[in-house]
C-alpha cells in the first residue's frame, strides 16, 4: 500500500512533531522531565535510550496525550488527528476474551466502525505481522512473541503517522527479540512509518534506529544524541559487523556519559 516512496535521508525529512522546552513535574517537586527538546521527522526511527527514571516513558506518555506537560510545547505538524497514533506497550496488552481479529479491530471499533467495514484493514495488518492464519485464535493460544505481533498489528491497523513503542520486546527471550527486531525493520521499510522506541538496550537501539536520543535521570533530560548512519535494510549480518560494534560502543559511551552526569550531580 505505501511502497510508492523511499524514506528520504536524514536532514531532508519533513517535521512531524516537535517538543520545545517541555517540563513535567510530579507532586510539585519530582522533575520527571526538564527542558526536553526533541524534533521528530517523518520516517525517523528514534530510540529513547537511558537508565530507569530518566523520563523516557514519561516523554512517550506526553506524546500519546495520556498526561499533560507542566510547561513547554508539543506541536504536531498538521495537528493530531484520529488514528494518527499507534501504541505498543511492554506487555502485549490484549483483551483475553476477544479473538486476535477482535483485538486488532479495537482502534477502529472505538471510532464506531463495524467489523465488516474494516475487515480488509485488519487482515492487512495481520498479514504485515505474519499472523493472517490466526485471526480466530484467542490470545492464550499464542506464544509471547505472537501476542506481541498482534499488539503491533493493532498499532498498525489505522496506518498511524507515528508509532510509539515502550520497551515492547523487553520481556521476550533473545531469539524471539531478534526475530521481532528484524521484522519490525522490514515493516518500517514497507510502510515508511515513523517510530519512537523506548528501550534500555544499547544493542537493540543501535540495530533498529537511525537516531538514538540518550537520556539522563534526575532530572530526566536529553543528554546526547547519537546518529546511526548505517544504511537500511539491516539484516542479521549487520549484527555481527565491525560497524555495528563500533556504533554500539559509541552509544554505550554516550549512555555512560549520561549516567556519570547524574553521578556528579548526586555527589556535588
Amino acid at each position: 500500500m505505501s511502497d510508492h516512496s523511499i524514506i528520504p535521508p536524514m536532514g531532508q525529512r519533513d517535521e512531524l512533531l516537535s517538543m520545545t522546552d517541555v517540563d513535567k513535574v510530579f507532586n510539585g517537586n519530582v522533575e520527571a522531565l526538564k527542558n526536553l527538546n526533541l524534533t521528530v521527522n517523518q520516517g525517523d526511527f528514534i530510540s529513547l535510550l537511558g537508565p530507569s527514571g530518566c523520563g523516557k516513558s514519561t516523554a512517550l506518555r506526553l506524546i500519546a496525550g495520556l498526561m499533560r506537560q507542566t510547561s513547554g510545547q508539543i506541536k504536531w505538524n498538521g495537528g493530531l488527528n484520529e488514528g494518527d497514533l499507534g501504541v505498543v506497550f511492554q506487555e502485549p496488552t490484549l483483551m483475553p476474551w476477544a479473538t486476535v481479529e477482535q483485538n486488532v479491530w479495537l482502534p477502529h471499533r472505538l471510532r464506531g466502525k463495524s467489523l465488516d467495514d474494516v475487515r480488509g484493514d485488519i487482515m492487512w495488518a495481520l498479514k504485515m505481522v505474519g499472523l493472517e492464519k490466526f485471526q480466530k485464535s484467542y490470545p492464550r493460544e499464542l506464544s509471547g512473541g505472537m501476542k506481541m505481533r498482534v499488539s503491533i498489528a493493532r498499532a498498525l491497523v489505522t496506518q498511524p503517522r507515528l508509532i510509539l513503542m515502550d520497551e515492547p520486546f523487553a520481556a521476550l527471550d533473545e531469539i524471539t527479540r531478534h526475530k521481532l527486531n528484524n521484522d519490525l525493520l522490514m515493516l518500517r521499510d514497507k510502510l515508511k512509518c515513523t517510530v519512537i522506541f523506548v528501550t534500555h538496550s544499547v544493542f537493540e537501539s543501535v540495530f533498529l534506529s537511525d537516531r538514538i536520543v540518550v537520556m539522563a535521570a534526575r532530572p530526566g533530560r536529553v543528554s546526547a544524541e547519537v546518529s546511526v548512519d548505517a544504511p537500511y535494510p539491516r539484516t542479521e549480518e549487520f549484527r555481527t559487523s565491525a560497524q555495528y560494534a563500533e556504533l554500539c560502543r559509541k552509544a554505550s559511551d554516550a549512555l555512560h556519559g549520561a549516567m556519570n552526569q547524574h553521578g556528579e550531580r548526586a555527589s556535588a
Binding site: 495520556l66 496488552t93 476474551w97 472505538l110
Partner: peptide
C-alpha cells in the same frame, strides 16, 4: 481492568460507554 488497556482506550478516544461495554464489563 488492565491499566495499559485503559491507557489504550484513552489514546483511541473511547467514550465512557465504550470503555464500560468493551473493557470493564468483560
Amino acid at each position: 481492568t488492565d491499566h495499559n488497556l485503559r491507557d489504550l482506550y484513552k489514546i483511541y478516544g473511547a467514550t465512557r460507554w465504550q470503555r464500560l461495554r468493551y473493557l470493564q464489563l468483560p
